[in-house]
Design a protein around this nucleic acid. Structure first.
Lengths: 208, 208
DNA sequence: GTTGCAACCGGAGGAATTTCCGCTTAATCT
DNA sequence: AGATTAAGCGGAAATTCCTCCGGTTGCAAC
């Protein structure tokens, strides 16, 4: 697995420059920790993820986990990383209507629909991600989503601040809300997607 | 202060029926705890609120705090309570356009605008509120907001599930996001309100 | 007043997160 | 190979949230 979000210490977007070398033992431990964490989540659910336990299970000190991943959110970034790359690739460079080639309005709708799937797909991890402080939360994938939507909205709706609209489109698709809608309100994933499309349509249709 | 959200043990909506008696010592402690908590927040910020410390400062055991308020979120409910009542009264029974008397679309817009003010007004406490688990978060004030909006939206936009739309209107006005937009994106409160109005308009305008 | 008991009290303690720091070791340079 | 050193390591300890339970007390009924 390549190094992704899980850079040492702080939460950063992927760096493509020269990846400064990582000592062999450090790399070994990172692997071990990620594997153990993934297995434990599969076993007992993401909400039961205890870093203490991960450390114990991986036969490393707690300090090692924290140095490698900063905090729990950092570890979750690393666990999400693989599928997240695929998703990002899809809306950045993939085929339309998600990727470039389709109209902005259509791409927004496609993006929101795909995002619902993305959230549902790794719901537990997404929930964990949203537990972090906002400083952290808005750095991860969210930042890229926001940039993407802002660009598209600026094309089609220049009258209103596209940065706000981008947030307004992303906010209803947060993992906690979706999870609540499904579990407590009884909404199906399809219903949520339909709602997302309605949202997209309402905000990309310029008016007088 | 009346008893509001801060009912013993669990998080509930206000009960207007007969308020079952509370022992004198219990009432005394509730007061003391609320006062100490309020003072500590004023002093060191809401994010530094430690229940252990509140207990120590109020000269009661930690257990007492937890029996009275259930958990941190419960205590925050109690602290919010007063202004929250005023706000709820305003959109339930106050003068239009916020209260009844105006058209549904207009009321939605007025509500969202007022909600922005509400969130900004007690931002720190709102942030704390959102930190609780979703089970808790969606019980407090949120539940009432959602019911209110759902009713209004059902009048004006029956084609789409109004419950989803209500969530979609509330989500962008969460305290974490607003705080981020103001601090990091440099958006003014006015800009956020303008965005909220745009949202309201886009979702209350029925289309083909 | 006395009494009975349900409600209440306080704080010890478990679980989890996160910080800190003295020791160890991998990688590099000579 | 040997020396140097920055990076890494592990776990003790501080902090916080929350639960639990043996002892205490307000209060209502007699």
């Amino acid at each position: 697995m390549q190094r992704g979000y899980a850079l040492p210490v702080s939460h950063q977007l992927p760096i493509v420059g020269q990846p400064q070398p990582e000592r062999a033992d450090a790399a070994r431990n990172r692997q071990k920790i990620i594997q153990v964490a993934a297995r434990m989540i599969e076993l007992k659910g993401a909400d039961q993820l205890s870093l203490d336990e991960v450390a114990r299970e991986a036969c490393v000190g707690v300090g090692t986990v924290y140095r490698r991943f900063g905090d729990r959110t950092g570890l979750v970034f690393a666990l999400i990383d693989e599928r997240e790359r695929v998703f990002q690739e899809a809306f950045m460079n993939g085929p339309p209507p998600l990727g470039p080639g389709a109209g902005a309005a259509e791409r927004v709708a496609a993006f929101l629909t795909a995002l619902v799937d993305r959230v549902v797909d790794q719901q537990d991890l997404m929930l964990l991600l949203e537990l972090g402080s906002p400083k952290v939360r808005f750095r991860g994938p969210y930042r890229l989503y926001h940039t993407h939507l802002t660009r598209l909205l600026a094309e089609v709706r220049p009258a209103v601040d596209p940065r706000f609209l981008a947030d307004a489109l992303l906010a209803p698709l947060n993992a906690h809300l979706i999870s609540y809608q499904r579990d407590e309100r009884g909404l199906t994933v399809e219903a949520i997607k339909a709602g997302a499309r309605t949202l997209a349509q309402a905000l990309t249709q310029p008016r007088a």
